[in-house]
Design a protein around this nucleic acid. Structure first.
Lengths: 253, 253
DNA sequence: GCAAAAGTGTTCTCCATACACCCATGA
DNA sequence: TCATGGGTGTATGGAGAACACTTTTGC
């Protein structure tokens, strides 16, 4: 087991102390928001996670709901703070509210070590019900932003996740299932790609979401039959084979 | 417009006052649970609603989460309190958290009149994020229970809903959509029927959920092909036509 | 026998699958 | 010319829709 190495940086402690002083005035108590941010890179489906302090543990990007803020707006704000993106595709998919989710030993122990003693009545000590959203982003446009509590923002392959705290692993799996269900239904896939893409890239994306191989020729026909793809010029890439067409998502709303 | 007639019953006021005194010690603040209870009766899909005080307005059965209680357990408890049923089919489907949902003029006005002045800082005055569940019940086994705040418990046809408070109408419509999606997927329909039923009853149920007519012969084949129906003896009902078979849901888990 | 509803069989179409085939490209 | 990947055509099978047909029941 990896040794847990806690930073003892005064600035970090001060940041946390300041948050704890102001949080109860700004945010709703007892309710939090967690977001599963999906990206697609190198033919793999990725999830954006935050390193918890200086430990080897990661958590989902999350936050709290301002007292005069709509729930969906809070999720969007939290995402924008973490990615600096506008126009994010966002779906609420689950609310997690078991007592045990907030009590996980490791997390509590780590929190204690990070900021010293935590009075039982303070912000982090309370029980939270967490409303969970998933987001689809073009990872090339994301500018990951860290903040006081977290020392690193990192993309992880959905199949090679690190150790995560709380019930966040469960939440990530639920998000994936929901994404699978939404992918065809809501034409959500194109939010994970850039402006243009080849048919093979699109296929790899579907394969990484459904976690299974698809038949190339039939996939192509199915995508074209949706009537939402615009075929652009061919993309010559120097490879010794036929150049693939580029496509653009052109939904006629 | 119907005149709003408010009861000024001392017992009701006392009940509410007592609740307000103890609630903050027992329940999480800021989070509530609302349930859409579906039943099926006389070939119609029904929803169980509570009359708000002595007004013509209705609300969804709902409640709060105890400080040491799992979210799903809270939903189950609230349902059991209202229906006296065990083993209820329950699905979480949405969490509603817009600021405006708690601020609807009519609701606030009614609450004021019911219990006199409400200090802004009290329990009902706070903002709630509501986690919503839908339940499927055999309505013949339900024993609707009223309580202090509500003067009537009543089944309503999904297409003939009364005026409901807050955003509960929106929640009901979302529940129906989710039920439609789950019906085939999770074989959920049988929770709405008694032990045995005819194919026609099952078809009427599907039609009332999907809100459209289905072709009798093809529906029969589809249901039988699921492999979860056990055919019992015929049901002679005195009508001058062939007697239908009775079926039982016999899922091999 | 007749009307009404229940149950079964048949055809047709659509769509997903499987796979054969040809095309374009650079080494 | 060859290997590699891209694009299109075609046969097949299964599921659902449409509808014809038979069976059962009480009057």
């Amino acid at each position: 087991m990896t040794k847990i190495d806690i930073i003892s940086d005064a600035a970090l402690k001060n940041g946390i102390r300041q948050f704890l002083e102001t949080a109860p005035d700004i945010y709703m108590a007892g309710v939090s928001v967690d977001t599963v941010i999906f990206g697609f890179h190198h033919d793999k489906l990725k999830v954006l996670l935050l390193r918890f302090g200086n430990t080897p543990y990661f958590v989902l990007p999350g936050g709290y709901i301002k007292k005069e803020e709509d729930l969906d707006d809070a999720a969007l704000r939290i995402l924008q703070e973490r990615t600096e993106l506008q126009n994010i595709y966002l779906e609420q998919f689950y609310t997690s509210g078991n007592i045990s989710r907030s009590n996980e030993k490791v997390a509590v122990e780590l929190a204690f070590k990070m900021i010293g003693t935590i009075p039982n009545s303070n912000w982090f000590g309370q029980r939270f019900v967490s409303v969970c959203y998933y987001a689809l982003v073009d990872d090339t446009k994301v500018n990951p932003v860290t903040e006081a509590f977290f020392t690193e923002v990192k993309w992880f392959d959905i199949n090679k996740l690190p150790r995560v705290l709380y019930d966040h692993d469960n939440i990530i799996q639920k998000a994936l299932k929901r994404l699978q269900a939404d992918l065809d239904e809501k034409l959500a896939a194109f939010n994970l790609l850039g402006e243009t893409f080849t048919m093979l890239e699109l296929q790899k994306l579907y394969e990484s979401v459904y976690q299974k191989k698809l038949v190339r020729t039939n996939f192509q026909r199915k995508m074209l039959s949706l009537g939402v793809l615009e075929r652009l010029e061919k993309q010559y890439n120097g490879k010794s084979h036929k150049a693939p067409y580029l496509y653009r998502f052109a939904q006629t709303v």
